[in-house]
Design a protein around this nucleic acid. Sequence first.
DNA 1: CTTGACCTTAAAGTCGACTTTAAGGTTTAT
DNA 2: ATAAACCTTAAAGTCGACTTTAAGGTCAAG
Lengths: 143, 143
Amino acid sequence: MLLIKDVCRITGLNSSTIRYYDSKGLLGEVERSDNNYRVFGKKDVEKLLFIKKARDLGFELEEIKKVLILKESGVPPCSYVSRKIQEKIALIKKEIIRLEKERKKLEDLLQEAQKVTGCRGKICHYIEGLEEEQELELENAIK
Amino acid sequence: MLLIKDVCRITGLNSSTIRYYDSKGLLGEVERSDNNYRVFGKKDVEKLLFIKKARDLGFELEEIKKVLILKESGVPPCSYVSRKIQEKIALIKKEIIRLEKERKKLEDLLQEAQKVTGCRGKICHYIEGLEEEQELELENAIK
DNA sequence: CTTGACCTTAAAGTCGACTTTAAGGTTTAT
DNA sequence: ATAAACCTTAAAGTCGACTTTAAGGTCAAG
């Protein structure tokens, strides 16, 4: 019913992205016309819109593929999806904590380093953090 | 004074990583022995420790290279580094906000979807978010 | 009959920071 | 003399989700 450029228009996806998804097996069997053009139906468009949303939620193509395959084979994918969403939330929480630590580290560094007038440190005291402890170790290691 | 494996021991870096940094020009001119082995001095080890710290703070190799080159040519890299740190803090803030939105989105999705009993949606209502508005558009687009 | 707008595939390129592999040279100990 | 433990380079592989390129087939309009 639809050729690839129509599907691009409807979904907002790039034609090469759609072919890529197809090549990765996310669309199952896509119908072909006599001249070997892909012919997309309503189901295909639904799948593509689904893929787009799932990608936007941070799902990987492999995860999405699994969902689509479960669905295709009559198994409700909801529990899998629900679990994945919970995993993603957990990962995001972790990542936020990591970033907040990172941010604090950088802010502290900036604060500390700005107290100093002029340029200190072997290369740059902003990054080296003014420490001198490693000095001795290094000297010893070299000799 | 030091061969690469000694530098690995001191810095905790992999030998191929050190060679990689060298190949990218981060170490400047590294001395060579008669048999063409790299011979590292105190300065080189300092640079490598600096690179390690900077990488840990989220600096890219190209940024670090610039710092090292500034330093080498006698220009204090501090103002560049300070600016980069501020940029990184800004990026991290943005990223945290993005992740918090993402997290809220996923949590809302989970909450909403769990109200429903059984499996709804064309593929999975967890991801599709129960909406039906797009339905008509799609129907029209196909015909 | 040719131009332009479609469509196809396979393969390579992109991003960054490495890691791995292949093929080989050096040095030290046994 | 040979094995072990170093060292070297260039090139390819890795991760994921694409994008781009090259080379070519199809189809309708002018």
